[in-house]
Design a binder for these strands. Structure first.
Length: 276
DNA sequence: CCAATTGTTATTTA
DNA sequence: ATAAATAACAATTG
């Protein structure tokens, strides 16, 4: 489920109730898959009694900083979620990490276990965090770097290229489709076939979708929305892409769904043509 | 039983 | 050697 804006929504959900608070109890389900890069025991020891000081998101990753130089990384994978419950919450089957404060229970759940937890100690943020590619909304996400990347991936369909985190951090399946739809680019277009003008439009829509999604989904600049997706306008492709018989909100032509680059892809034949 | 799922990575193919 | 395609991971739902 989670892409850049959903990840920010979940981070805020934990942060708003727990920032500045002490973790009194830590519970884990020590599943190898979830804890594949960080054993659960040291994580439990370090977080018990620690205070949540700060948190941040980058791409699809979250980093929570605790007192005592403890860093907790979360990647939600396909089905991960961060939730907040009352103090009497009982750990469920798919709850891999449960953090209790005097007022709330924070839960990381992930039935499919494509997600993972990271843990590090030290004065500085861990290396995996600082290695994440520059954000879509940063000044380093330039037209030139995008154009150079498309040249290197010239033969791959543009849809597959947008999913590459090394250049498009935080973009997932729905964001990629939304961006291509707005840019009026067919998802099967070879990345190397885009004209300079099309490349500039693509970059602009990457930033626009990131900005608008953060505002609509994570409530950036305002209160946290009660749920994901409640504020997404029907003018976006998003609200039509999974409904059978869905229509393009701009051309009112039936949308198409096909597998491209290994993922189900939705586009509007009214707007997005293969040959331009 | 079959197919589907908003992600990533290892392996195979070209 | 590099890039692109494919399989695999696990659980649940329709």
């Amino acid at each position: 489920m989670p892409e850049l804006a959903e990840v920010e929504f979940y981070r805020r959900r934990w942060h708003e109730v727990a920032a500045g608070r002490r973790i009194t109890v830590v519970q884990t389900h020590d599943h190898k898959k979830t804890y594949r890069s960080a054993p659960a025991a040291p994580l439990r020891n370090a977080l018990t009694g620690a205070r949540l000081l700060d948190s941040a998101t980058a791409a699809k990753q979250m980093l929570f900083r605790f007192s005592g130089g403890a860093w907790l990384g979360v990647h939600l994978g396909m089905s991960g979620e961060l939730t907040v419950h009352p103090v009497n919450y009982i750990q469920g089957k798919h709850d891999h990490l449960v953090l209790r404060t005097s007022r709330h229970t924070l839960v990381f759940s992930d039935p499919r276990m494509f997600g993972k937890l990271e843990f590090a100690r030290g004065p500085d943020a861990p290396a995996w965090w600082t290695r994440i590619a520059p954000a879509l909304l940063s000044t380093e996400f330039t037209a030139d770097t995008v154009a150079a990347f498309l040249r290197r991936r010239a033969k791959a369909p543009i849809k597959a290229v947008l999913l590459m985190q090394e250049r498009f951090p935080g973009i997932g399946n729905w964001m990629a489709d939304e961006i291509l739809w707005r840019a009026a680019l067919h998802p099967r277009r070879a990345a190397g076939s885009l004209t300079p003008a099309e490349t500039r439009v693509l970059r602009r829509e990457c930033r626009q979708v990131a900005r608008q999604a953060l505002r609509a989904i994570a409530g950036q600049g305002g209160p946290l929305p009660p749920d994901l997706n409640v504020n997404i306008p029907n003018t976006w492709l998003f609200n039509h892409r999974w409904t059978d018989g869905g229509l393009c909100p701009r051309t009112h032509v039936p949308l198409i769904r096909e597998e491209i680059g290994g993922r189900t892809t939705c586009w509007s034949p009214g707007r997005q043509r293969l040959k331009s």
